[in-house]
């Protein structure tokens, strides 16, 4: 067994183990960092496969993404530190079943499928080849991804901004009730500013 193989098996095990831990750990912050570990291990496997740019790109993309993920975790979760045991799942048996079936089906494809064995040629420079592809034949695809990202940014700012042209983002919204059909739980109080604004509006 070569050093490459040993590195591969260690990283594969880490990727799968960390991916599994994401959904069983109590702490939400830990969950996002377990996902980061899973991505880092996959990045190392990509480096082993000579995808030098993609592996390293995965490192920095995922470090930033998971950092943001952890911040959101802390903002939205009741139990970010995992001090209490926590299991927030629904239809778990179905989910496990589907997960296992998908894994089995895809593995069957991997084991029984016949794929041509054409490894990367000796002299290929992966980064150069990727660069020529991105800014050559596939420039349209690459630039479309860029424009889509720009559109995403605009949409995200629009969705998350507190106020639009016609008033507050949460104007008229109702939190769900504690029990089905019950009174709205924890309705946010009208802010001082909001009420003032309304008052003025009526006067004019």
């Amino acid at each position: 067994m070569s050093a490459v193989d040993i590195t591969f098996f260690i990283n594969a095990a880490v990727a799968i183990f960390a991916g599994w831990r994401v959904f069983v750990t109590d702490s939400m912050v830990r969950a996002s960092f377990f996902l980061l570990i899973s991505f880092l291990a996959v990045g190392v496997i990509m480096l082993l496969l000579a995808a030098v740019y993609l592996g390293v790109a995965l490192f920095f993309m995922m470090a930033v993404e998971m950092m943001v993920m952890a911040l959101f975790m802390v903002m939205f979760m009741m139990n970010p530190a995992g001090l209490n045991p926590m299991k927030m799942v629904h239809q778990e048996k179905v989910a496990i079943g589907v997960g296992v079936v998908v894994f089995a089906a895809l593995s069957a494809v991997a084991v029984f499928g016949e794929f041509p064995s054409r490894p990367v040629p000796e002299g290929l420079q992966p980064v150069v080849s990727l660069g020529h592809e991105l800014l050559g034949k596939s420039m349209l695809v690459f630039e479309s991804a860029g424009v889509t990202l720009l559109a995403t940014m605009i949409a995200v700012v629009m969705l998350t901004s507190h106020r639009g042209r016609y008033g507050d983002a949460n104007h008229g919204s109702q939190p769900p009730g504690l029990e089905p059909g019950g009174d709205p739980a924890d309705k946010p109080e009208e802010t001082e500013e909001g009420g003032h604004h309304h008052h003025h509006h009526h006067h004019h």
Partner: peptide, 10 residues
């Protein structure tokens, strides 16, 4: 590394 600069960026 052929992508050393990107690695520092990571």
């Amino acid at each position: 590394l052929t992508t050393g600069i990107v690695f520092w960026g990571a």
